[in-house]
Design a protein around this nucleic acid. Sequence first.
RNA 1: UGGGGAGUCGUCUAACGGCAGGACGGCAGACUCUGGAUCUGUUUGUGGGGGUUCGAAUCCUCCCUCCCCAGCCA
Length: 501
Amino acid sequence: MKEREQDNHSDFIRDIVKDDLASGRSQNIHTRFPPEPNGYLHIGHAKSICLNFGVAREFGGLCNLRFDDTNPVKEEDEYVRAIREDVKWLGFDWEDREYYASDNFDRLYDYAIQLIKEGKAYVDDLSADEIREHRGTLTDQGRESPFRDRSVAENLDLFERMNKGEFGDGEKVLRARIDMSSGNMNMRDPVMYRILHEDHHRSGDKWCIYPMYDWAHGQCDSIEGITHSLCTLEFEDHRPLYNWFIEQLNIHYPKQIEFARLNMSYTVLSKRRLVELVDKGHVSGWDDPRMPTIAGMRRRGYPPESIRNFCDRIGVAKRDSMVDIALLEFCVREVLNKTAPRVMAVLNPLKVVITNYPDGGSEELDAINNPEDESMGSRKVPFSKVLYIEKDDFMEDPPKKFFRLAPGREVRLRYAYFITCNEVIKDPVTGDILELHCTYDPATRGGDAPDGRKVKATLHWVSAEHSLDAEVRAYDHLFLKEDLAQKRSQRCIQSGHRGYW
RNA sequence: UGGGGAGUCGUCUAACGGCAGGACGGCAGACUCUGGAUCUGUUUGUGGGGGUUCGAAUCCUCCCUCCCCAGCCA
């Protein structure tokens, strides 16, 4: 691995892991990356992937890929496939450890029965609205449901019948019996199971009750033998609930550690809002090159190594942050500068006629494929009497700091010759510059003058007759606004590109 | 005004009672077969008040600010 990717990270999570190993609290390290298959992975997920797989690798442990597929109405197999591909492309390998929360539906059902039998869970007939109303507010404690003290036998019977499909969606739920007066909302008798007569992408029509994420997640971690459950900050106050379940069930305890999710300037990283961009047709799809998705960045040509480097550089901490997208772009350029073969292309052409070059003549010149990597060799580029240069590389009346081509000035055509501009041909009506007439110095072939004279600038160019048409897609940031982290939905999409929006 | 978290250059992140450092961005200069490259330099920071200490970003205390939580979403 490259120097940047050496295992020399340090952050508060790795410190904890190190301590746990040193103290004997953990004998081994086992992490997991647990996406819900309801959308494509984005750069924020890349941070989590690099963290989870990175920590496992650095401490000689393992990292699982687990799909948290507890909500059949949102999840699709297409997303499972996309997520697999993206994690693999990023350079990580979960080997045979691909798991699904749905693998554990039977086990979770048994766990639920266990809690019911111990009087720690009950079936509630309250409607969703009533439950919300009973839950109380941030400052006022909740009220207990009138169904909270049903007998174990009745709860067992009702829960079984929920599972058999005797009730409609929303008619009943199974709730944990914890504490309606807790200051922590998550402890106010959270819902464990809801009724959903819906086919699941894996279990099909086997179930019509589905576990809530909060009921499934911790137990899945436990079942997989996860030692350190790394997740984002918003789950901090779910931790007491997860721990409560684990303690009641008396099963393996995974230590949850929360870190700050990634925010980046000029883009959005919430799945909800990315879905919106896709669904409303603001972008061509999840892999639109302007999307901050892994698939989008792959299509845009970002090397996976650059994304890993980026994740290393931003670090891992608990404070909310907004990373400058310029850092990502720097990481991309850094890798591409070393690895990308170069060719010359003119985006906005200005015709140049070399008046002292033979009519119909042409020749081939040597061009280096990558100035930063000699081993990439060289190629031949055709040169002839009529060329195109970039419009921006010429100014009829140049300001002081402009060193490129201007009337009477000599510059280098890269890998070719020194040329001097003698005449500017304009449209007599509009005054637009149509073409430049230049002369070349045959002695400067290859780009160096034998008399040692220097030029201030070097220009890229193509031979008109040999040049190829190309479709060039120049992308800018998706959003005009720098900070989109606030909850308020923004409508600041970059406009004016090909009429897409 | 309940509960849970967090405050260090513009941004991200180190420093774990002992010289506040690095990266990105910005700016300036140099250099170059491109001025979107490279190199060099540079600016700027411990939220505030008290306290402990020879010494505090770090420990104590009070305050301020910001983030998360009232889905049968994850």
